[in-house]
Each structure stands twice: as structure tokens, then as C-alpha cells.
Design a protein around this nucleic acid. Sequence first.
DNA 1: CTTGCCTATGCAACTCGTTGCATAGAAGGA
DNA 2: TCCTTCTATGCAACGAGTTGCATAGGCAAG
Lengths: 204, 204
Amino acid sequence: MAIEHAILVSLLEKPGSGYELARRFERSIGYFWTASHQQIYRVLKRMESDGWVDVRDVPQHGRPDKKEYTVADLGQAVLSSWIHEPIEPESIRHDLAVKIRGAAFDDPAALIHEVERHRRAHTERLAHYLAGEERDFPGPGRGSGQGQGAGSDPGEETPAPSGPLDAGRELQHVVLRGGIAYERMTLAWLDDVLATLHRLAAAR
Amino acid sequence: MAIEHAILVSLLEKPGSGYELARRFERSIGYFWTASHQQIYRVLKRMESDGWVDVRDVPQHGRPDKKEYTVADLGQAVLSSWIHEPIEPESIRHDLAVKIRGAAFDDPAALIHEVERHRRAHTERLAHYLAGEERDFPGPGRGSGQGQGAGSDPGEETPAPSGPLDAGRELQHVVLRGGIAYERMTLAWLDDVLATLHRLAAAR
DNA sequence: CTTGCCTATGCAACTCGTTGCATAGAAGGA
DNA sequence: TCCTTCTATGCAACGAGTTGCATAGGCAAG
């Protein structure tokens, strides 16, 4: 009960075809949700027959036609009611943590390369997020610093360019800051893991 | 291809029944992996018929008999080869982030209670982890501080009580530190989200 | 000119995981 | 006494998600 909602949000932000959705799920939305194109096509078809979205055939020059999906009124309503119903705070599911605990019954040093590989991948992701932030949310106002929560002073309004309709942008930004904080935290933890593995290898 | 491995690790740390495994998955292992008892029973049965684990019937006084599972040689080998094969760095799948972006097309203020609820849940989890750390890993050495990575100086050996066989404990501790860092990061981010929502609500 | 990649959509088969239900004895509280 | 909770195991049905494959035109590099 959730890919539908992610698709609805993405289509509200910008209508598009199944293919385009699949690419978005590799990018901005995919930072916190993944889905393969097969799944997206299947779900879109169901959503269409349920009246959550509308389709429109768009011929293209030199490319296959695409079906552009838009959110229907019913889809809006479904999304709204989902937003209002509470969900369980989710727990992580981290393969690497299982491997680390399993390494106690194998050679811990053998994991060092794997952990370094993950570290590189997360470094890349962080750089990618930061580049996206620089591109889409420039300006000095509230950079994603230490993730210290930016205080909780809702009183002070941003003086100059506080447009009325950029709630969407603000919310996209806070989600992106979450991704950045997650990657930073993960990198620090992986350093901790590496130090521990090295210590164990040295003292074997 | 992973619950099997989590079960193998858990059984290596301590043999037990399906029921006991299910309870562990709500606790220590469940910090980074969840599984319902139905699934555990089903997988255990398959693992047994594949020769990865051995079963032993244990009669009990005043309670239903239980089947105690132990890891067989083949299971050890399977786990070892899994540990040595590389896995993809996983991405998160965070429902709340979808809701937050979706709130742009609904009332952002309506999310405040939900986010506060999540914040409470994560506060509890953090307290739970910290209590577990205090209990299982006391002593001053390397408390889970800012998650700053504890440096990367593998040269310095802990002088006094560096037992030879607590590789398992060390690895359990570093995984727990990961859970703690995750919860701290999440709490900071939720504060950021709350501040953003309040700002938007004030400027609506 | 062939090989491979990009756009674009989709089916079929399978595994993974959740939800709902069932059984059954013992212990403890209302 | 009845109701709930805990231990302990399990089936059946469904939904979610992955993997493999198929089609098909255009474009670019070797």
C-alpha cells in the first residue's frame, strides 16, 4: 500500500509516462523509494482501471508514442486520505549489518574490502545529493549543516523571497536534507566499522 | 536471499526455536531486520530440508515442546560464501518522506501530529538502544559519541581487557552503534521537518 | 555494418513477505 | 469463572517485488 502513493505524488509534481516515472524513481524519488519499470507499468494499469489516474496518448517524433498519466480527482482523494492516516515508523533492513555480525564466525578482515566498497558508493551518493541541492536549492538560507534540526523557532519568517506557493519546493528540500543526513551518518558509521574491523584484524 | 542468512547468524550466536528467533527479531537482530514468526517457521522448514540446520525436539515442563535449531556444516558454508560475495549498497524506503512530499498537495500542517508521533517512537527506540548498550557494553571505552567515526587509527590496541574471542561482541557493538547513530540522525531530521512544517503553516 | 545503448511498453513466472486464521496447554488477573 | 496473555507451531491466501524475456525504432560509436 505505498507505491501507488509514491506514483501519485510524483505525477502531481509533474505528469508523465511510465518510463519517465521509472527514471524519476532512479533519481529524486528513488532517494527514498525504488521501483522497477515493470512494477510501475503494472501498478499504473491498475490505477487507471481504478480511476485514480487519467491517460493520454502522446505521439512523438522519432520515438515510440508514450502514454502520459495525470492524477484524477479520485487519485487526489486517495492520496489525501492516505496522508491523513497514521503509518508505522519503519525500521531499517540492512544486509551489511547482518554480514558484520556474521563475520564473527568467519574472517572479519575479509569484510574490509566490502565495507570500503559500500563507503565509496555512499560517498558518491552524498556528492550526488549535494550537487542536486546546489542546483535546485541554491542560496545561503539554511544549508544542510550538521542536521542539528535547524532549531525549532517557527516564528522567524524568511524576509526576502518567501514566495507563497513554494511549499512543494520547501518540502522537497527537507526530504533531500534527510537523504544528505542519512548518507553522512552512514559514512561516519562505516568509518567506525572499518576501524573496528582493522582493530580486530590487528589483534587476531 | 537474506532472511536465511540473518537466521543463520542468529542461530550461530545462540541456537534456538522458531519462536525464540521470532522474539530475537523483535529485539537485537530486529534493529536492522524484521521477520514475522510465520515467515521464520516457513524458512526454517526449508532450511532444514536443505540441510542448512539441524533440529532437535526439546520437551519442556508446563509448556509446549519446542524444536531447537542448530546450524549445520552446510549452513556454515552457505553463510561464509554469502559473506564473501559482494552485495549492493541498499537504499532506504521511507514512507514518511513520500507523505511529506505529498503534503504539498494537501494541508502541510496536517502532518505535524504524524511527524511528532514518529519522533516519539524514534525517541523511545533510541532510549531502548542506549539502555541495551549500557547493559551489554558497559565501560568508558569508545561510547557511541557523535558517530564521528572514532577516527581511523587501528594501531592503538586497547591495553587492559582485550580478550581474544570477543570479536563477536565487538561486532555486535558496532552494529548497535549504527542503530544509535541512525536514530539520532532521524530525530534531528524530524526536528528539521517539524520546523519546516511550522514555518509553512505560519506562512500559509 | 554491426553492435550496443536509449526510448517506450509489456507479459510470465517466481520468490518474498504480510495478513488472517487455527490449535492448545499453562498462568495470572478481574 | 472467564478472559487475556504467553509459549509454541503452523496453514492458506494474497499482495508486493524481482528476474527474465520480448518487441521495436532511432541513434551513435567502432
